[in-house]
């Protein structure tokens, strides 16, 4: 199949970017990233600079890919990362627009690569349980109801790719932050610190310059791991509780 690609090219963070158009010949068995590999090999053979796009595991779990394909983070298929998107979902002659994730908190480094270190800092603000190595009690000493463990897993399945921010018209990081808050708050081990955790994480999220949630739910719709906005409601609940009914303050 012959495709026309409109790809965002930007030399570095300081420079201004623009769309460039490329022709590429692909086949339907390729993944989207393999199609980009073909384009890059072609560019290199012409001694031109290849398109920089971030990727690593190519099986939908590392969360490294960060591109918006025809307006959808990770492409139009639900529950799929860009690396799992296959070309059989496109037709011969299609024009495909590829852009980086856009948000003030995710500045573009080069072409399709963006800086998502804000997510690390949100986790560093409290997305953990304070337990030193060797302090743990026997794993089976605290039973956890099966469906609660499953719900915690559903939230913990977040791959930290940032598609939620990219999809949100407000560039809010609520789905990401709430998934971690929910994961840890659902488990008995995580409940001890939940007041401090939610205050600190929300505070850090705001400090990073993410927008406010207005429940558009585009985050859930585009999340490759289909993480639910129910987590956002849970974060709101925990936040009210921590700020109104506990003595804790942001640290």
């Amino acid at each position: 199949m012959k495709l026309k690609l409109k790809i965002w090219r930007q030399k570095n963070q300081a420079s201004k970017g623009t769309f460039e158009t490329y022709d590429v010949v692909a086949n339907e068995h390729m993944s989207f990233l393999e199609m980009l590999d073909v384009l890059n090999e072609d560019l290199i053979s012409q001694k031109k600079e290849p398109v920089v796009f971030e990727h690593d595991c190519r099986e939908g779990i590392c969360g490294t890919c960060s591109m918006v394909i025809n307006g959808h983070p990770h492409g139009p298929n639900g529950g799929t990362t860009a690396c799992q998107l296959h070309m059989r979902f496109f037709k011969d002659g299609d024009i495909i627009t590829v852009e980086p994730f856009r948000a003030s908190a995710f500045p573009v480094y080069k072409d399709l690569a963006v800086d998502r270190s804000a997510f690390d800092r949100i986790i560093q603000a409290g997305g953990y349980i304070s337990v030193n190595t060797g302090q743990a009690v026997d794993a089976n000493s605290v039973p956890v109801e099966q469906n609660v463990a499953e719900a915690a897993f559903d939230a913990a399945a977040c791959i930290g790719c940032g598609a939620c921010v990219a999809a949100c018209p407000n560039s809010s990081a609520m789905l990401f932050t709430s998934a971690k808050v929910a994961h840890l708050s659902l488990l008995p081990q995580g409940q001890v610190e939940e007041n401090q955790r939610v205050l600190n994480m929300v505070n850090q999220m705001d400090a990073e310059g993410f927008g406010r949630c207005s429940n558009v739910t585009a985050c859930e719709a585009e999340c490759p791991k289909e993480i639910s906005v129910a987590n956002i409601a849970m974060l709101n609940r925990k936040y009210f509780k921590a700020s109104l009914a506990s003595e804790k303050k942001v640290q």
Binding site: V68, R102, A105, P169, S171, G211, T217
Partner: peptide, 26 residues
């Protein structure tokens, strides 16, 4: 939220939503 979004807009803009009207929501 406009500040959080940044100055560069998407060339192709689509908003999908779950359990709500995406036009209204956005």
């Amino acid at each position: 939220n406009r500040k959080a979004r940044g100055s560069e807009a998407y060339a192709v803009k689509v908003t999908k939503a779950v359990n709500t009207n995406s036009f209204a929501a956005s």
